[in-house]
């Protein structure tokens, strides 16, 4: 009796959360999926007015998923994700190691490394656009006359550079948090045992910082797969060389093609979900890894 009442109480207390989740997460998701099977506002009547109401379109909206433009956008999105996340991990870890060291002016250095992350993406997009314009800083320094912001392979590079500049500090920050909980004794013990600096990094730092690093990578993957603002501001919409999936969805929605936009949105959702699932399964990124697991690991490593 008491148990049932407690159960009811428990459900009662979590129900607001469930309602909010249902409203914020599931309703939009289901609504978008439903919309992806409908079409509206695409035909005119004899007097030139748009025929109102929507009609079931079956899988017609998904036809574009096999089209050149969608595949190109998928390729760009994947390329940006792989390249930028890989570079950001390397740079981010390096930044974290530097930030972690104790020296004069450390606070200043930490603050300045974080500046790019604090700049809003649209603003940093404009800033890099200024750098990459035809008579901009980039060409002046390199002594080149590259049209970075025109459609082409250079535009890809420009987006990658700007994205890595902006988000490496984010990875650095999360890794720094991971570094700070590694006890100093572990390093001491390693040093006593005669481990070189490289061995200490490879055998101690990296394994112990792995949980934090994986969280950072997972966040960055999710972020990079739905990147929109940087290519949009820096290079411009509908440019094939940098059009990402989110960019494509935005363009369709702007042109009031809500059906295809929802279909592509659903496809992007599935893509991101699959990547996240595979990532978690393969790398065992235990996002709920708690202090216990971490303590155990540090014990193991120290042993």
């Amino acid at each position: 009796m008491i148990r049932t009442r407690q159960n009811l109480l428990g459900w009662g207390m979590v129900s607001p959360t469930l309602v909010v989740l249902a409203l914020v997460v599931f309703y939009p998701l289901v609504a978008a999926m439903r919309e992806s099977f409908y079409t509206s506002g695409q035909t005119l009547d004899a007097d030139g007015f748009v025929v109102e109401g929507e009609r079931f379109a079956g899988a017609a909206n998904y036809a574009g998923v096999l089209g050149e433009r969608f595949l190109n956008a998928t390729f760009n999105t994947t390329l940006f994700t792989v390249v930028t996340v890989a570079m950001e991990v390397v740079l981010g870890v390096a930044m974290a190691l530097v930030m972690h060291r104790a020296f004069r002016g450390r606070a200043f250095l930490r603050a300045s490394i974080l500046v790019p992350w604090a700049v809003p993406t649209a603003v940093s997009g404009l800033m890099w656009k200024w750098i990459f314009q035809a008579d901009g800083v980039a060409n002046a320094i390199l002594g080149t006359q590259i049209l970075w912001t025109a459609d082409g392979v250079w535009a890809k590079l420009a987006v990658i550079v700007a994205d890595v500049w902006k988000t490496s500090p984010f990875v650095g920050l999360l890794v720094l948090a991971g570094l700070q909980i590694i006890p100093a004794e572990v390093y001491e013990a390693a040093r006593v045992d005669g481990a070189s600096a490289w061995q200490r990094f490879w055998r101690i730092t990296l394994p112990l910082v792995k949980p934090a690093l994986l969280v950072a990578v997972l966040f960055r993957l999710m972020d990079a797969l739905r990147v929109f603002d940087l290519p949009y501001v820096l290079i411009g919409p509908r440019k094939a060389s940098v059009e990402t999936l989110s960019g494509l969805i935005w363009d369709e929605a702007t042109r009031v093609h809500y059906g295809p936009a929802s279909a592509y949105g659903t496809a992007l959702f599935v893509y991101i979900a699959v990547i996240a699932f595979v990532f978690v399964k393969l790398l065992g990124a235990d996002l709920l890894s708690d202090v216990r697991a971490r303590k155990k690991e540090s014990r193991d490593a120290a042993a």
Partner: peptide
């Protein structure tokens, strides 16, 4: 975390659509 992330992408669209869906 990421489900929400993904849902927001699809969701933002969804909301806009739901609004316009009711012909």
């Amino acid at each position: 975390g990421k489900k929400i992330t993904a849902a927001v992408v699809a969701g933002l669209l969804g909301l806009g659509l739901a609004a316009c869906g009711q012909g």
